[in-house]
Design a protein around this nucleic acid. Structure first.
Length: 707
RNA sequence: GCGGGAUUAGCUCAGUUGGUAGAGCAGCGCUUUUACACAGCGAAGGUCGCAGGUUCAAGCCCUGCAUCCCGCACCA
């Protein structure tokens, strides 16, 4: 009975021999490109569209296991929708990831003993480009190994020429509308990375810090940072604090301080917490955000104490030029000698702000930077602010966030949102499209004509360009491209929840403002993939797993299934190789089912009961697919194919010839339902099926379940 | 402080609108009877964190509590 069967079907399933070959077949068919599908009559010209823009992986290195979670999910959606006959586009790209890449290459150079500054901007950028080109190649090849049916003809990069034009156009428009401004604000300065970063790029760490209490004239003040206290000449308390009623707002008091006598001014402000410490504090407006606000409110002087490198300025007198960490104890010593030290609390826990990328301790500074105003009313958008433009589509359901509790998290974030600092003092990225000449400032898409104009050396926050991603990839700023009309707003975006604010929010901002429409209809968030112990994958733990190694051993299909089944939307997942193993066994099971069924003659009537049972399963699965319940659909298919079809239906059919047609029917349609999940093996079996014409990837999803 | 989540079999996790608890892995017994030992059959294993409430019916809804996790925030 095995005479007619292909030889390879007689051996256990071997994904290694199959997957590369199959991917090539798909790619050569051109069906990853929706235009080709229409041209070749696979998809109707006026069919509904379905589009996903791939969250562009950072071009800082290779893909890790976490990416495969995303790839599996999206390819499953894409393949399902393609089979449903929709014009389906999955657009690939990579992210230049400005700060991350800049600091990575800087570190590589340091290892070689080369200093970035000696190299110069141009040479450094050449070196970064080399590195990035390499990374991008690796990433693309990894995406192919996962079986991702991405339309490579549309591949984009967040820092290529087209995207740069989009960035400059967006900047210019926002500047003209008064949404982008340049100003002196208190910003997060990273002394280690020598750049400003946004609020979202800060990581807070709890750290035991000494909490000092000093005598300050008639008051006692608390601080964790004595080294900032040189310039303190305002002493602030709550207007309702009964302990200090005899001191009046504006009253001047002479007192002895670190470097001699100073004249302090009493300020009354409600921001003070009477319960904390002594209820009195002095302020350092240049280096603390809240102090800055108090100073603004009361129009007080602001003095810089610490420079860009974390060293004390001449205002510190004898301590000038000392690094702040070295100065601290010495200053405390001096105050102690002067009899001004009251107490030291050794167990105080402070929240230290550090830079996400460099790890440097943030030193707030007042600096001239570029900002996006999130509160300004925009005439062209019905006088709504960017904040409102971000809130509205989620509030009124134009954008659905899954799982939906993240909608609350999103609102909470927007309510606390401050102006977005977009300029960075690094070299790699989109350079700010602003030119200066003496007192002249020129903002435009292209450089001004004439001599002597110098471009702003700063680059833009990487998320500024990522914010444009859903439409900059489809042709914008050219608003008439067929792609933009057809595929925007996109159907789904599928990032991890950790970039809901960084990215998803910024895309909504940009799209709402620049296009007046949402960037996507559904945000399907996924969780973080952790190791078997529940730890994050990280280099310092060296617990990384190379997805390519897993694919080599178990096949991409098995890896994909393990990334989908049992992982609910937004849920973190622990990676266990046992799960991959289990699905590689499932692949083999399917292989054996095919061997058996292909050996049975396709005869007899369809068994009504079995067909009805299968069709109702297909219907259920279709519903699950439409409602983003892939984790359920995959599990149901697994259970049906193994424990119903193989264990029961096939067993009962043995020795009964009339089951042939039924078995063929069920197998054929099971392959279709399973294809979005396990594309390689299903396509391979399909290719061996007698009488098959097309690739499985463009077969129609079982019809009878369509409404 | 504000906000969100988790708590289900030894482990990892599902459980779609409330209707007699599920999977994978591990583990136990049997089976080498061929589509498949990358297998089959069978058994075992859960007071669904705790305490109330709503309901004919609750893992699922409501209230409170406990433990853990994660965001956000200008406590010096």
């Amino acid at each position: 009975m095995h005479d007619k069967l292909p030889k390879k079907l007689l051996a256990p399933y071997n994904p290694k021999e199959t997957e590369e070959k199959i991917y090539k077949l798909w790619e050569e068919s051109g069906f990853f490109n929706p235009d080709t599908c229409v041209k070749k009559g696979v998809t109707e010209k006026d069919a509904q569209t379905f589009s996903i823009i791939l969250p562009p992986p950072n071009a800082t290195g290779v893909l890790h296991l976490g990416h495969t979670l995303e790839d599996s999910m999206q390819d499953t959606m894409i393949r399902y929708n393609r089979m449903r006959g929709r014009q389906t586009l999955w657009l690939p790209g990579t992210d230049h990831a400005a700060i991350a890449t800049d600091s990575k290459v800087t570190k590589m150079l340091e290892k070689e003993g080369v200093k970035k500054k000696d190299m110069g901007r141009e040479k450094f950028l050449e070196r970064v480009d080399e590195f990035v080109t390499d990374s991008r190649k690796t990433i693309v090849s990894q995406l192919r190994k996962m079986g991702s049916s991405l339309d490579w003809s549309r591949e984009a990069f967040t820092l290529d020429e087209k995207r740069n034009l989009a960035v400059r156009t967006a900047f210019k428009k926002m500047y003209d509308d008064g949404l982008i401004y340049r100003g002196y604000r208190i910003v997060n300065w990273d002394p280690k990375g020598q750049t400003v970063i946004s609020d979202d790029e800060i990581v807070y760490q709890d750290k035991k810090t000494k909490f000092y209490t000093f005598k300050y004239g008639p008051f006692e003040i608390g601080t964790t940072r004595p080294e900032t206290k040189f310039g303190d000449k305002y002493v602030v308390m709550h207007p309702d604090d009964k302990r200090y009623v005899k001191y009046k707002d504006g009253q001047k008091i002479k007192l002895e301080w670190i470097n001699g006598e100073v004249e302090a001014t009493v300020i009354k402000d409600k921001v003070i917490d009477m319960e904390f410490g002594t209820g009195v504090m002095t302020i350092t407006p240049w280096h603390t955000a809240i102090d800055f606000e108090i100073a603004e409110r009361h129009k007080l002087d602001k003095e810089q104490i610490i420079d860009k490198y974390g060293k004390l300025l001449p205002i510190a007198g004898e301590f000038a030029g000392t690094k702040i960490d070295d100065a601290r104890e010495k200053i405390v010593e001096k105050l102690k000698d002067k009899g001004l030290l009251v107490s030291i609390d050794e167990n105080y826990v402070n929240r230290i702000a550090t830079a996400e990328r460099s790890g440097g301790v943030i030193e707030p500074q007042i600096m001239l930077q570029w900002f996006v105003d999130v509160n300004k009313k925009i005439a062209a958008r019905e006088n709504k602010s960017l904040k409102e433009l971000m809130l509205e589509p989620v509030r009124d359901g134009k954008i659905k966030i899954l799982p939906d509790h993240f909608e609350k998290v999103y609102y909470n974030w927007i309510e606390n949102l401050h102006d977005w600092c977009i300029s960075r003092q690094i070299w790699y990225g989109h350079q700010v499209p602003v030119w200066y000449k003496e007192s002249g400032v020129y903002v435009d898409i292209d450089a001004p004509k004439g001599e002597g104009w110098k471009q702003d050396p700063d680059t833009l926050d990487t998320w500024f360009s990522s914010g444009l991603w859903t439409f900059s990839t489809l042709g914008w700023p050219d608003e008439k491209t067929p792609d933009l009309k057809k595929f925007h707003p996109t159907s789904v975006i599928n990032p991890g929840y950790e970039i809901l604010f960084f990215w998803v929010a910024r895309m909504i901002l940009m799209s709402q403002y620049l296009l007046g429409e949402v960037p996507f209809k559904t945000v399907y968030l996924h969780g973080i993939l952790r190791d078997a112990k529940g730890q994050k994958f990280s280099k310092s733990l060296s617990n990384g797993v190379d997805p390519i190694e897993i694919i080599k051993e178990y096949g991409a299909d098995a890896l994909r299934m393990s990334m989908i089944v049992g992982i609910g939307p937004g849920a973190d997942a622990k990676f266990d190789i046992q799960k991959v193993k289990a699905y590689s066994k499932f692949a083999n099971k399917l292989w054996n089912i095919a061997r058996y069924v292909f050996g049975v003659e396709k005869s007899g009537e369809l068994e009504k009961k079995l067909i009805a049972e299968f069709n109702s399963l297909a219907k259920e699965i279709t519903l699950d697919m439409e409602n983003f319940r892939f984790y359920l659909a995959g599990e149901k298919l697994y259970a049906y194919i193994w424990h119903r079809l193989a264990d029961e239906i096939i067993e009962e059919s043995k020795g009964k010839k009339e089951y042939g047609a039924t078995l063929h029917y069920i197998l054929e349609n099971s392959l279709k339902l399973l294809h979005p999940f396990m594309p390689f093996i299903t396509e391979e079996i399909w290719s061996m099926m007698p009488g098959r014409k097309n690739l499985l990837m463009i077969e129609k999803w079982p019809n009878h379940v369509n409404k």
